[in-house]
């Protein structure tokens, strides 16, 4: 059992596996996103009611929440592979971490962007130094810092290790974002984000939101694996198997 895992952990073994998985993740992502969009736009109420009477702009929830979740989840993945790479000194883990970072940065930017466009009509501002907004911005800086640090160091092994350390240190931000909701009495705080729990979101809104989340999650797998394959080829270009792969894939 363990032997199998280590076999998959070699770049040469994982390269074709990733290649076979990408089309499936892409298809699942496309299907789920289309279902989520259709559901969110055509099968839900145009406006909310009750104590939170938001208008059509509440639909930004279908991209905002999934993007914010993915930004945090991908950071956990980034830090996780960084830690595994530092501890076990496995090449593939560092490549995995490097492949995750750009997609994570994109989702973090999207969480901030969609949040700004949602905040303007509902709260009355594009930006506020709300704890959650601030910590999400810091997460964006961390992704950018990881990418910048990695590309600033020419030696790959050093770059991997230095950037991995930054990723692990930055890990402290994820629980901060997650917990940076309001103090117990929401009317005595400056924070604009409120405690969210799935029970207070109606199923007709929750289901398309979760569908979109799964869709973007699947998309992330496809995008990260695609980037990982390019990284593997670049880094392993001295190995014989890469020659066969190149010969095969440039003629095909």
């Amino acid at each position: 059992m363990t032997i199998n895992w280590f076999k998959f952990a070699s770049p040469a073994a994982f390269y074709p596996i990733a290649g076979r998985l990408i089309p499936w993740f892409s298809r699942v992502a496309l299907a789920l996103v289309l279902i989520g969009l259709f559901w969110g736009f055509f099968l839900t109420a145009d406006q909310l009611g009750g104590s939170n009477p938001q208008k059509e702009y509440y639909r930004i929830i279908y991209v905002h929440v999934p993007a914010a979740w993915m930004s945090m989840w991908l950071y956990l993945v980034l830090a996780g592979w960084s830690a595994i790479g530092l501890v076990f000194n496995t090449r593939l883990s560092f490549m995995m971490a490097k492949a995750v970072a750009p997609t994570g940065a994109i989702f973090t930017f999207l969480a901030l962007w969609t949040g700004a466009l949602w905040g303007r009509p509902s709260w009355g501002t594009y930006w506020d130094w709300d704890p959650r907004l601030t910590s999400e911005l810091l997460l964006f800086f961390l992704y950018i810092g990881y990418i910048a640090l990695h590309s600033a160091i020419d030696d790959t092994r050093r770059a991997d290790r230095a950037a991995a350390l930054l990723a692990i240190v930055g890990l402290v931000m994820v629980p901060v974002i997650f917990l940076s909701i309001n103090c117990p009495d929401p009317n005595q705080c400056a924070a604009l984000h409120q405690r969210s729990d799935p029970g207070s979101i109606h199923l007709s809104i929750l289901i398309p939101m979760l569908t979109m989340t799964l869709g973007l999650w699947s998309y992330s797998f496809a995008a990260v694996f695609a980037r990982l394959r390019t990284i593997i080829l670049t880094r392993e270009s001295d190995n014989a198997w890469v020659r066969d792969v190149i010969a095969q894939e440039t003629t095909a």
């Binding site: 208008k55 059509e56 702009y57 466009l117 303007r120 009509p121």
Partner: peptide, 8 residues
């Protein structure tokens, strides 16, 4: 989108 096209 109910006049919120730019945001949505």
């Amino acid at each position: 989108q109910g006049g919120y096209a730019g945001y949505v």
